[in-house]
């Protein structure tokens, strides 16, 4: 009997057992993600030995860089108990801002990039205002801003791809330049993932994001500024979406008004596969990394075995893995 109590009765004894005493599958829960990734690598590696080559490793990292950066950003609102559906639109808009400033206005790259990032943070601030201050549901708020921001990109670009101008070749190094085999984009992703770890674990802000997602009202009653805290998670998501937007235009060599469509779902999928649950309070940088790599390995591996398994299966397999991750998580919660 584990009915909640109102009348002076402690919670039933069985639920008071320490976590270590849990049995069976639930005990494996912390490792299911890494086991699944290892299993996938083993399958692909056995069927195509080339899968384990260093080049392919760098390939995978480079391929996941954009979604990885988005996932780093997404993890803030997600752990804080919300989510951000406008990331793709923010990436498109801020990419267009940077491209336009570089080509049409001829501003130097650092200035153009900085202003692109500022535009992303500002859009994140709009999300934060709507969710934290106005009190809108994050789904509705960020769906609304997603549509608005995509629309703004269409207006801004006149629905035409923007070129990067004469500095384009230098700027494209962000995607194509390499350091010890790592592309700059993949290094940026890894650095941001490390920064995510630092923020979540070593800054009071990061710890407060956990408690915000864990119980917002408890947070408020303990005297934390929950409005600012929650708003900040969306600002960071917007800022990182803008960073991803820079990589997008560097990779494409132009700013396309439709480039970022659907990207927010990729970042959400990465986080969920990594084990960050919707609802907040749970999640870590390593889980983001794990989820991002898992998606990357699936895509990469399926390309390699493309002669045996049609690439058309990609989405089916991806969907199945998302569902599996969510199912494991749901069962683990039920056991609580």
């Amino acid at each position: 009997m584990t009915a909640p109590n109102e009348d002076g009765t402690p919670v039933a004894a069985e639920s008071a057992r320490p976590a270590g005493a849990r049995h069976g599958l639930a005990r494996l829960r912390p490792y299911t993600g890494i086991l699944a990734l290892a299993l996938l690598c083993a399958i692909f590696g056995v069927s195509r030995p080339r899968f384990f080559s260093p080049e392919n490793f760098f390939n995978i990292l480079n391929a996941v860089a954009i979604f990885g950066i988005l996932a780093v950003g997404q993890s803030f609102p997600l752990i804080g108990g919300g989510f951000d559906l406008s990331q793709g639109a923010i990436a498109s808009f801020s990419g267009a801002v940077t491209a336009s400033l570089m080509s049409a206005s001829g501003l130097p790259i650092p200035v153009a990039v900085a202003l692109g990032l500022v535009s992303g943070a500002a859009m994140g601030l709009a999300n934060g205002f709507l969710v934290a201050r106005v009190g809108m549901n994050p789904f509705v708020a960020t769906l609304g801003t997603q549509i608005t921001f995509f629309g703004a990109t269409n207006v801004f670009t006149n629905n035409q791809p923007l070129s990067l101008g004469p500095q384009g070749d230098v700027f494209r190094q962000l995607s194509f330049g390499q350091l010890a085999g790592f592309s700059y984009a993949s290094l940026l992703f890894l650095a941001l993932a490390a920064l995510l770890w630092f923020t979540l674990n070593l800054l009071p802000f990061g710890q407060h994001v956990y408690t915000l997602g864990g119980n917002e009202e408890a947070c408020r009653l303990a005297g934390l500024d929950t409005v600012r805290l929650k708003g900040m998670t969306y600002v960071l998501s917007g800022l990182l979406a803008a960073a991803a937007g820079q990589v997008v235009i560097a990779r494409a060599g132009q700013a396309s008004p439709v480039a970022g469509q659907g990207y927010e779902l990729e970042s959400l999928a990465s986080c969920i596969i990594g084990g960050i649950a919707l609802g907040g309070g749970i999640g870590s940088a390593s889980q983001v990394l794990l989820g991002v790599l898992t998606l990357g390995v699936i895509d990469n591996g399926l390309q390699m075995v493309g002669d045996v398994v049609s690439p058309n299966w990609r989405l089916v397999i991806r969907g199945a893995i998302i569902l599996l991750a969510a199912a494991v998580d749901a069962r683990a919660r039920l056991r609580r």
Binding site: Y210, T211, G213, G214, N215, A218, C219, L221, G281
Partner: peptide, 13 residues
């Protein structure tokens, strides 16, 4: 339950 603790987080946090 509703106002005091973040149930899914640790005692220490």
């Amino acid at each position: 339950k509703n106002l005091g603790i973040a149930a899914g987080l640790s005692v220490g946090v």
